[in-house]
Nucleic acid binder design. Structure first.
Lengths: 389, 389
DNA sequence: AAAACTATCGCAATCGTTTCCGAAAACGAA
DNA sequence: TTCGTTTTCGGAAACGATTGCGATAGTTTT
């Protein structure tokens, strides 16, 4: 049997249950409990990020003094500070962010939840967020919801677990219940919505001119003489989709043109849907002579599909879309769009969030609208005498 | 003057220096130091993420018991565990990641440093990284170097400060010294390079078929009958740029064709450079009849510029590029490319890094090559009888 | 029914920093 | 000098979670 680790006696030992799988012993002589560890840890001294304590030991001072030196405290002698900084530099000291955050109760990190990094719009927003955040001394933690409500909820939990100081979120198109956001808001977490916002909760929001964009694109088409404009709408519940369609409707009203509800097609943003919508429209007794897509990617896909079908653009069918990308100007015919400014949206949202974080009490949520820009290109220019240079 | 907070006496009070800007007092009677705080904090009880202690208080048990319940420890009564889980759920408890990480000495977070989020290639890599990381229970923290060495160094420091468990890095094109990486590697931080790797340090690497891609693209052009192929190369020091050009040279050697060094243009990847290079080539006494660009974006820009100049592609000048994007297939003429698989690169790199993190001792760095694919399109197809469907 | 054993839980240390409080040493003016 | 004042530093308690160890009540074995 195992001898006692203290007296070395063997007879006085009795087993005393299990702890974490390991046999536990009790020495009746020493009145001592112990577990039999195969005497493993001769302290291999892992390579180790230098801590404040390492510095303190080198100089024979207390950790608190080192901390003061590193934090530009006034309560420290200049010479001591210099010595500490020298050693800190020598040992390549980096403050442990975890310990700092735990102590201060703030992480200087903001969480971002977007549907998909690979979409240029969101990549642009991210870049804007990163810029502002970095300048303000904040880190950024990014999560993708992949357009799934469930994943989005998990993302929120993960970021809360990471104790981010605030949250920037653009909802998945699946998201119609917002309990996960409300809950955190109630706990005092600053949240700012952008693009795909949610009106059920009182947060600051950064949105685009969805209504006006839809209006401008539609008005442009109507003025070009298009009379039956089909709409490729997003999911029924998606707020920005609704707003853009409202703009579409308003333009029609302004010019006293009736709307054929049969021309509105709801679907996801996938490639298949573009083709399905097109086939649906072309199968109608009264075909459309124009198309307005909520998302530019669908517009691009439709141009490709129409070219395959040898339907001329913009003569037989004109097409306009929301959102811009380099590709829209390069495709032939180039695509008329309502251009967004994703970078600016990101910048603005990040600024507002940080404002909210810094001053959580006096902060009053407000909504910011980032102006877009109508860019007219060939896909909707019926008159050939008009050139776009 | 202020009375003593203990005895209430006023006469026995003397001032005793300043602490953090506040006047400090000393009561000679009580032998007590104190600072005059305007009696502000009646504990406003900020809204608060629930902690393990909150749960413990509710149930009148100790925090350690709660911890055990939450961590599937065996040393706990099933009924107790159920009760704890119930309360935890009721209070929407989320473990404080900071505290956990600090205690365990690992953050379950991996840091990623890339030159630019907005480049589709890197966005794709990120998506791949995110997928693998999420599945393995890791968080991802992303930094952009903006192609600046200095920023890259700061990024490394920031991530080290955040105590990431490992680092994925694709170097800025400015980076030629790698001390910042070496230092962390020496401290035991697992690092994996991808795409823009560095051969000076012993890390695992995930690279593309840069040499073979350059070779394949060039060989294709030579077989098409192009004889004077210009190269738009990246910065002179960029490793992947060198490899691609080596492939270009190898293809020439294979077919016994001499290379005119005047056709190799080094420059950054910006739009201006594309145009400058083009003008340079077109100003040569012996103009090129083909172009090979290291980066697809430059290829796209050159196609645009050539079209403006009314130079026909692929007849007068053929063009091929490295890297693929949707746009390459949509532009007219569509662009022949050596397609990369960014998502797969990201997945692979993340997997290797996590492997390294989990088993730091037995891990031996190795290099993985992600195969690319030559996609032939119109921009380099001289013979019109060959169609690409 | 005593002895041997087990299940379950609390205490306290730990992770690295910050900061409140106390105290000694140095400084200044009378 | 002497006492009020200031500067400078150390000790210790946070922050929230994990875990080794000790302890007790209950259970099983002789």
């Amino acid at each position: 049997m195992t001898p006692c680790i203290k007296c070395g006696n063997v007879e006085s030992i009795v087993r005393s249950g299990f702890i974490r799988g390991k046999q536990r012993m009790f020495c009746k002589a020493c009145n001592l409990y112990f577990t039999v560890t195969p005497h493993n840890h001769p302290a291999p001294k892992k390579p180790h990020q230098t801590t404040i304590i390492d510095i303190a030991k080198v100089l024979g001072i207390s950790p608190s003094t080192v901390s003061r030196a590193l934090n530009n405290s006034t309560e420290i002698n200049e010479n001591t500070r210099k010595e500490i900084l020298r050693v800190a530099n020598e040992l390549d000291y980096r403050p442990n962010f975890l310990a700092q955050s735990l102590n201060r109760g703030e992480t200087h990190t903001i969480g971002v939840i977007i549907p998909d990094i690979q979409r240029p719009f969101f990549a642009g927003v991210l870049a804007g967020i990163q810029k502002v955040a970095t300048e303000a001394g904040y880190r950024v933690m990014i999560c993708q919801s992949n357009e799934s409500h469930h994943t989005e909820t998990l993302n929120v939990q993960a970021l809360v677990t990471s104790r981010v100081d605030g949250l920037l979120i653009s909802h998945s198109k699946e998201t119609t219940s917002f309990e996960h956001v409300k809950l955190q808001l109630k706990k005092g977490l600053p949240i700012v919505h952008f693009d795909r916002v949610c009106n059920e909760v009182e947060t600051a929001k950064v949105i685009q001119e969805d209504f006006f964009g839809g209006f401008a694109l539609t008005e442009h088409m109507l003025l070009q003489g298009y009379k039956r404009i089909a709409v490729f709408a997003g999911p029924t519940d998606l707020l920005i989709s609704k707003a853009r369609i409202d703009g579409y409707k308003a333009a029609h009203e302004k010019y006293g043109i009736a709307i054929d509800e049969a021309l509105v097609y709801h679907g996801s943003f996938s490639r298949d849907e573009s083709v399905k919508a097109l086939n649906y429209w072309l199968g109608l007794p009264q075909k459309p002579d124009g198309i307005f897509t909520i998302h530019y990617a669908n517009g691009i896909e439709m141009i490709m599909a129409l070219k395959e079908k040898n339907i001329s653009i913009p003569e037989e069918i004109g097409i306009v879309a929301f959102g811009d990308e380099l590709i829209a100007s390069l495709i032939e015919p180039s695509l008329t769009v309502f251009h967004q400014f994703p970078f600016k949206i990101g910048e603005t949202a990040a600024n507002i969030l940080i404002e909210n974080i810094i001053n959580p009490d006096s902060f009053i949520p407000y909504t910011t609208v980032i102006q877009g820009e109508l860019i007219i290109r060939k896909s909707s220019l019926k008159t050939n005498n008009q050139t776009t240079i």
